[in-house]
């Protein structure tokens, strides 16, 4: 009995040693010599593999960085400027600063503002729905609400609000990786310059219908009236196809445009509450406004 155990131990150990030697030799023979800096760069990255840089994953991005002659065109949105400075340091190159950005949902057609006109009953996917038809409301531009933007987010930074049926971005978590922007078949989500204290002013609508049609389908649609364009002191607002757009670079966040918008489609977020002014602001407040908590606070 003892002998059997002994033989077993000896033979198994011998097999193990032999296998180890063979594996060692093979590993030596077929070793892939890689630039060690790739590992260093990869370690410096957030390893979220979100694809925001345009490469398949962090490893691919690291390889691209090591191969590149300068850092132009290489940027890791989740890591931001700090990470890129580290990466550039490892590679002995100059980092190119980029303004941090944040995803913004440009539709505020909640259930209350945008009445349903039919019932969608297909696969729960915005891509499927949008290839079928305009959507279950009168607005063919707006959010379909099936959450295609939520699924690809690696950072848990965008959620559907069941009360409004619209996605909401958590600014602190958003890394501007672009995944939701690409996922949205209606191109509603946009990356905009991230300002101090996450303040932002933007037109929360992409409806290019004529004012009357837009307003009929959604009470908070931009009707392209041009009031904001006139009031803007920085030439940041343009109107094209009955739709206002605020250029995030030109906009100085002066807060002149939101009060003049007759449909409340310009949102201002992250600002202290406005002081009550003698001007009849109340006139611009109309139905549907009650659905926007952020806006309500701002107006008060």
């Amino acid at each position: 009995m003892n002998q059997v155990i002994l033989y077993t131990i000896i033979s198994l150990s011998a097999t193990g040693v032999a296998a180890a030697i063979i594996l060692f030799l093979i590993a030596q023979r077929f070793r892939v010599i890689e630039d060690p800096r790739i590992d260093d760069v990869e370690d410096a990255l957030p390893s979220a593999n979100c694809g925001g840089c345009g490469y398949a994953g962090c490893r691919n991005f690291a390889e691209a960085c090591v191969k590149a002659e300068n850092m132009s065109g290489l940027f890791c949105p989740p890591g931001g400027n700090d990470t890129m400075a580290n990466v550039a340091g490892i590679l002995g190159m100059e980092a190119l600063e980029q303004d941090p950005e944040v995803a913004v949902v440009r539709c505020s057609g909640s259930f209350a503002c945008r009445p349903r006109t039919n019932q969608y009953d297909g696969a729960t996917s915005c891509a499927v729905a949008s290839s079928l038809y305009a959507g279950d409301t009168g607005c063919q531009w707006g959010c379909l609400g099936h959450g295609d933007c939520v699924r690809p987010c690696e950072f848990d930074a965008i959620h559907m609000n069941p009360e409004t049926g619209l996605p909401e971005v958590v600014d602190e978590k958003c890394t501007a990786c672009n995944a939701c922007v690409e996922a949205c078949p209606k191109d509603i989500i946009e990356l905009r310059k991230r300002a101090k204290r996450d303040r932002k002013i933007f037109v929360s609508c992409i409806n290019e219908d004529k004012g009357g049609i837009a307003k009929k389908s959604c009470s908070v649609a931009c009707i392209g009236c041009g009031k904001c364009e006139k009031v803007c002191p920085h030439d940041a607002i343009t109107i094209e196809n009955f739709l206002a757009y605020i250029d995030p670079v030109k906009c100085k966040l002066c807060r002149k445009c939101p009060p003049v918008c007759p449909t409340n489609s310009i949102h201002e977020i992250g600002f202290p509450p406005r002081k009550p002014k003698p001007e009849p602001v109340a006139k611009t407040l109309e139905a549907g406004e009650s659905d926007e908590p952020t806006k309500k606070e701002d107006k008060k």
Binding site: G122, A123, S125, A127, V128, S131
Partner: peptide
């Protein structure tokens, strides 16, 4: 299951 929905999406 909505088989065709996703196949159609795939074709696009």
């Amino acid at each position: 299951r909505p088989l065709l929905d996703y196949i159609r999406l795939g074709k696009v």
